[in-house]
Design a protein around this nucleic acid. Structure first.
Length: 302
DNA sequence: ATCCAGGACCACT
DNA sequence: AGTGGTCATGGA
């Protein structure tokens, strides 16, 4: 291990059979983790935290004393039975490939507002560009959080804070045409017209419909928020990579694949942990298969 | 230079 | 229900 000094902070570690920290923290489901030493630093539940490895264990360090570790255990999912979830996947070749190439990949349980804001900004952007937008919003508008050794970092800005800005301030964070959408979403949440926490108790379809009532939130962004921020494990976001993966791996002979057909397949084929399966397909496609596929692979031509 | 990126929306069919 | 244009911005 080679992390930051703990100072007056605390250290905790968990025995975890398989956990791919890099694929999970940098793989396009969260956008705020930065490399530090042999691990990553970020802000979770309003606390600075460093996450890395200690041999076979996943380790977390805080800058300040903490009374419990539930907030980061839940975020990382270090107590969850990954093998048990993978065992619920359908036994098919595409998933066998994806599981073999992404061993230890997991789903994070993120803050719902942060997930909504980040994925609202994700439209037609690469992961590195989303990270840059998020970094700018954090640096310019995020609340200060005490870091290690006297450093100060910033949390992702609250809905209340973003709702107080004007469109220009968000465009200055490189949001482009997404700026007015994020501003309206921030206002809806800040004014209590949309209570994200309440959505957890709704059926998937109803929670999705509520999210899609926001301008700029379509099916894909809604499913990201449901899966990464609200704990709906069957939500299955279909972006360009997942569409390519499904087309190439499951429908190699289809000449055309409508969104409706993809949707029905994803809802029925993958089981209770469909969202996790989606993340395996996404990561596998983006990191291993992307270059070989070249352009236009969504239609399954050979 | 051209295409494309963890899309959504609108106007037409 | 399915297509095409448009919206910013920057990677590859």
């Amino acid at each position: 291990m080679n992390g930051p000094g703990v100072g007056e902070g605390c250290v905790a570690a968990w025995e975890v059979a398989e956990y791919d920290l890099e694929g999970t923290l940098e793989g396009g489901q969260a956008f705020g983790w930065e490399r530090l030493g042999d691990g990553w630093e970020g802000v979770v539940a309003g606390r600075w935290v460093w996450v890395g490895r200690d041999g076979a264990r996943v380790e977390a360090r805080t800058a300040l004393p903490v009374g419990d570790w539930d907030w980061i255990e839940g975020y990382l999912g270090v107590r969850e039975d990954l093998a048990g979830m993978l065992a619920t996947f359908p036994d098919d070749e595409p998933l066998r490939q994806a599981m073999a190439s992404c061993r230890g990949l997991r789903l994070l349980r993120q803050d719902a507002w942060e997930a909504l804001a980040c994925f609202l900004c994700s439209a037609t952007k690469q992961v590195v560009q989303i990270r840059e937008m998020v970094r700018l919003m954090r640096e310019r508008h995020g609340k200060e959080v005490p870091g290690p050794a006297g450093r100060v970092v910033r949390a992702f800005p609250t809905a209340e804070r973003l709702a107080s800005l004007d469109e220009g301030a968000l465009r200055a964070c490189k949001l482009g045409f997404r700026a007015p959408n994020l501003l309206m979403a921030a206002r809806a949440v800040a004014e209590g017209r949309l209570e994200l926490g309440e959505l957890r108790r709704l059926p998937l379809d109803e929670a999705r419909a509520r999210l899609m009532g926001l301008r700029g939130v379509g099916r894909k962004v809604a499913d990201c928020v449901l899966l990464f921020g609200l704990g709906f494990e069957r939500a299955f976001p279909v972006d360009v990579w997942v569409r390519k993966a499904l087309a190439r791996l499951y429908f190699p002979r289809a000449r055309r694949l409508t969104a409706r057909r993809i949707e029905r397949f994803s809802e029925t084929h993958f089981g209770p942990h469909a969202g996790l399966a989606q993340q395996y397909l996404f990561h596998h496609a983006r990191t291993r298969l992307g270059r070989a596929w070249g352009r236009g692979g969504a239609r399954g031509e050979e």
